[in-house]
Nucleic acid binder design. Structure first.
Lengths: 337, 337
DNA sequence: CTGTTAGCGCCTTCAG
DNA sequence: CTGAAGGCGCTAACAG
């Protein structure tokens, strides 16, 4: 079909070894020969087979990226960042979507291994830590992003979820809200668990009771945010504020509130996670956490490349601080306890 | 490192060829032997090297997907669909982001070729048709999605943009709007050009003049939608309605309108493309086009797989009809001409 | 039904 | 500074 290294060698009147040297920028090739080879490459429009190279060097120049929801803008920003870094360093990216499914995640990890990826970046769906422990032991470069695999000594870059949730909920309390409902992601993911923890701590510190009937959790999809919020707001003693633990859940909650005809922040306040900048549409009173999403992806990619270069370096754990943004004051004067 | 086919063969007491046969589900292997091989595979936790297989069969089980903006929900739905189909048929997906950059697009196409992909799905950034023509001639399976590569006899799945734009603009006109501004994507992409055409035709059919000062175009990013809309609305004789030719531009336009304190539809009407379901936040009066995004991706993947199976089949061109959705009536009684 | 063998395209010693 | 040759792991003839 297309030109092979042998064709180039013949055309340039050298051996394949020399062509290979030129290709990989090795020294010890005379300028004249190098130019001849380069010309031949150009004339034949030669592109080396990455597959053959991968087989030979036992390592492809591919980075695997396994995220849990490609349709979540949070993750697309990460994809974008990883791609940028990868491309700049000569790697390409294989993207897979675990869809919050532990089985799929495992399958894709196997796929990546079979594909000889140089390394992978994964947002672990749940705590199937054994898998990651084994990868680390086998010296497979892998970094966790957004979510942790607890107790596994591996590279990771995550957000400070406890603190962020704590700040959001505290902000609500300090503005007079008392019955604060929570719409959270699944507790199996570290993000869900940590944000729940921040919620609890904030309540306790302000002397408010933990009311299990005010807490709901589900897969992070906007439809769930919608349904869970309807559930919360359908109770006789309904919450006067909602804390949402994930950007898609936030969207769903807003829709539910909208449908019920409740006004923000007079009837109900909302504070939650949201990395998008589209919340401006809901004019008033929304406290949001924006995570430095692109930065997370960038750092994860850098960590991965560093580990590929040095498999024995000590694991790094990067914790990024999210930005709290108050769209409008959620203040309200009367307090109903 | 990990087990190779030879190890499995030894463990099972057979030859590598037999193991290979079992692996690829070929017939002519006795049940007993097959079981022994399967056991050996299990015991050794063997996973065949896809790289070696790719080199051998001169074709990887990878599908390349080149889209122009990973952060655009329109494309993520496509990614999702392609992945679903691919995975189901035993393919994995390499995703690349051309970022509306013709150079990058070309680079990625080369990368895909070097990676020996089975085929690729691309949303062509501009009309670098020669590239696609050459791919088609070389019998490289490739399908265009969302945008066309004009005059190239290739598989494609696109939306009926002219008709959609025509309907949107007509709807505005029929509701009494007369000075209809347009915020469009780049005309180099077929989508931009076709939507502009629909806009023009609708105006002409209703006897309205084409006013160049009412038309703006730029890269499909929300920031551009914002800026271009501000430009349009900053004119002395400002438009009474805006037609937006892309979902991100729509978002930007809404923000601009929001910032200027204009009310929809009393001060200004909006009709545009938007595949998201988040527009509910802008309560009244928005006419939108929703494209069957997932379906586009699915069909593109199916076309690609069909072409991989039969490189000589005639090219198929699938044109999907978008759904027009009127959020609220944009009707207004008084007509200002 | 099963084994032997010859490469796929490239890189990388090891000699010159 | 350059060439010759072996082999990465697998599959597809071709023999048995």
């Amino acid at each position: 079909m297309s030109a092979r290294i042998e064709d180039v060698a013949r055309q340039a009147g050298v051996s394949t070894a020399t062509v290979s040297r030129v290709l990989s920028g090795k020294p010890y090739v005379s300028a004249a020969v190098r130019q001849r080879v380069l010309d031949a490459i150009g004339e034949l429009n030669y592109h080396p087979s990455r597959v053959a190279r991968s087989l030979r060097v036992q390592r492809s120049s591919i980075i695997g990226l396994i995220i849990s929801d490609i349709q979540n803008p949070f993750f697309t920003a990460i994809v974008r960042a990883v791609e940028d870094v990868a491309q700049q360093r000569g790697y390409s990216v294989i993207l897979c979507n675990s869809d919050e499914d532990v089985e799929k995640e495992l399958t894709y990890i196997q796929l990546m291994l079979a594909e000889q990826v140089s390394g992978m970046i994964v947002s672990p769906t749940a705590s199937n830590n054994e898998v990651y422990r084994r990868l680390v032991e086998r010296r497979v470069p892998v970094v966790a992003i957004d979510r942790r695999a607890d107790d596994v000594p591996m590279d990771m870059v995550v957000g400070d979820n406890v603190s962020a949730a704590h700040q959001l909920v505290s902000h609500l309390i300090e503005n007079g809200y008392r019955r604060i409902g929570a719409v959270l992601g699944i507790p199996e993911a570290s993000t869900g668990a940590e944000r729940y923890q921040g919620y609890q701590e904030a309540l306790l510190e302000h002397g408010l009771p933990l009311a299990p009937e005010l807490v709901r959790s589900g897969m992070p999809r906007s439809q769930n945010g919608y349904e869970l919020t309807l559930e919360l707001l359908g109770q006789t003693l309904r919450p006067d504020a909602i804390f949402t633990g994930n950007n898609l859940l936030t969207i769903g909650a807003l829709r539910a509130i909208h449908e019920l005809g409740l006004r923000i922040p007079d009837d109900i306040a909302v504070a939650g996670f949201d990395e998008l900048d589209w919340m401006f549409l809901v004019k008033p009173a929304l406290t949001v956490v924006m995570q430095p999403t692109y930065e997370m992806g960038r750092q994860a990619a850098e960590l991965l490349l560093a580990r590929i270069d040095d498999p024995e370096r000590p694991p790094q754990q990067v914790v990024l601080q999210p930005t709290i943004k108050v769209r409008e004051s959620s203040r309200r004067v009367s307090v109903t306890v």
